Simulated assay, not measured.
Amino acid sequence: MANDLMTRNGFGMMDPFERMAQRLWAPFDDSEQVLKTDISETDDQYQVKVDIPGIDKQDVKLAYRDNLLSIKVQKHSFVDHSDKDQNVVMNERHEGTLQRDYMLPDVEADKIQASQTDGVLTITLPKSKDVTGDGKIEIN
């Protein structure tokens, strides 16, 4: 009976070897790609730091509306098809879009500042009781 329960996936139990295989292949799983983010808060502002290595600032779209900061990143991959001899051993570059939204209330949208340095996007969102602005954010 115990062995029957251990093999049922309906209970969320997996074979130990299956769990080990999932951990082994996890670094290669595209579903794990997210925008790694740190958010800090003071009485005056929120500060958001997002890792976006290798991304040009024109490929990042930021917006703030209805207490929601939206970050959308378009990643372009380099694909070299000029190697006719099939000498490429590995290619891990990907292309696609990553997007995350963060609920950050009471922000003065027209005073939000963003900059990108060394692959880190830093967004400073000043807090305010009177919320105004159109929601578009330029990256310096």
Score class of each variant (00 low, 15 high):
F17M: 12
K57R: 13
P126W: 05
M20V: 07
Y102K: 00
S40W: 04
A26I: 02
I39L: 01
E92I: 10
L125C: 01
G133I: 04
M1R: 12
T42K: 07
R65F: 02
R19W: 14
G135W: 03
L121I: 03
E18A: 12
S77R: 11
D38F: 06
D110N: 12
M14A: 13
V73W: 03
K111D: 15
Q116L: 15
V107T: 00
H76S: 09
Q47I: 08
D101E: 14
A2M: 05
L62T: 03
Q47A: 04
D56A: 11
K36Y: 05
M1H: 08
K136T: 09
F11G: 14
V107L: 02
M20E: 15
V120E: 05
T122F: 07
Q58P: 03
G96H: 10
Y64V: 01
E92M: 12
M1T: 09
G119D: 07
Q74G: 10
A21N: 14
G135C: 06
N3W: 04
A63E: 05
V89N: 09
K129P: 08
T97E: 06
D85Q: 09
M90G: 01
M20Y: 12
V73G: 01
D56R: 05
K84V: 10
Q33R: 15
D66H: 08
Q45W: 07
G10H: 15
P16D: 08
K84W: 06
Q47C: 01
K127W: 03
I123C: 06
Q116K: 08
L69I: 07
M14L: 15
I52D: 01
D59Q: 06
H81P: 06
M1A: 10
I71P: 00
R19I: 15
L121V: 06
F78Y: 11
D15I: 14
M14T: 13
H94N: 01
E108W: 09
Q33K: 15
D80M: 11
R8H: 13
L35D: 02
D80F: 08
Q47Y: 00
L69W: 04
Q113D: 07
D130C: 05
D110P: 09
F11Y: 15
K36L: 15
S40L: 06
V79C: 07
I112Q: 03
T117Q: 13
K136P: 03
A21G: 15
G54V: 01
V131W: 02
K127S: 10
K84I: 09
Q74M: 13
I55D: 00
D83S: 01
V79D: 14
V107I: 04
Y64C: 07
I55K: 00
L62E: 02
D118T: 04
N91S: 12
K129G: 14
I137P: 00
N9S: 11
S77D: 02
N67L: 07
Q86H: 12
R93C: 04
L104G: 07
E18G: 06
K75F: 06
